[in-house]
């Protein structure tokens, strides 16, 4: 599909969609959102890119093979179980680290839950794109 309008709009949209996916990922801890939905949104960006340009271009834009991306993501999620081990808690116990912070402000919370979510984000992105790339043939 080579439409100038679609291709022009895609340039803008892909960046916006990817940004929005990161926003969804971050806000997911206390509000609707999270790794899974953010991963879906991000994969929508790449699907759009593939439709507007071509499958090869989308693969090249991703840089990593989607299966590898999914594996890395899942490993990150697994890694979020490890801090619990070091502190002697059961696996996947949620642990928080607050950076900065002061009077009335807890600082930036970095948690194992966030690590888990980032892992899910990458895993979903990789898995969905792996499926899409197999089904879709130019």
């Amino acid at each position: 599909m080579s439409s100038v309008i679609l291709q022009g709009a895609t340039r803008l949209l892909v960046a916006l969609i990817l940004l929005f996916s990161v926003y969804m990922l971050m806000r997911g801890h206390n509000l609707p959102g999270g790794g899974f939905i953010a991963g879906l949104i991000a994969s929508a960006a790449f699907v759009l890119y593939a439709l507007a340009w071509s499958l090869q271009e989308a693969r090249a834009a991703l840089r990593v093979s989607p299966v590898k991306l999914a594996a890395i993501g899942a490993l990150l999620s697994l890694a979020s179980a490890v801090p619990g081990l070091l502190k002697g808690f059961p696996p996947f116990t949620g642990l928080w680290l607050f950076i900065g912070g002061g009077e009335g402000d807890k600082g930036i919370p970095i948690s194992t839950v966030l690590l888990f979510d980032v892992g899910i984000y990458l895993a979903v992105l990789g898995a969905v794109l792996a499926l899409f790339f197999t089904i879709e043939v130019d």
């Binding site: 590898k68 594996a71 890395i72 697994l78 696996p91």
Partner: peptide, 22 residues
Amino acid sequence: MGWLLALPFLLPIATGLFALGA
């Protein structure tokens, strides 16, 4: 205890992901 019981599935998942990567 938690780790001992979780390892039967955590270990194969981790192994599988590494194997998939390689």
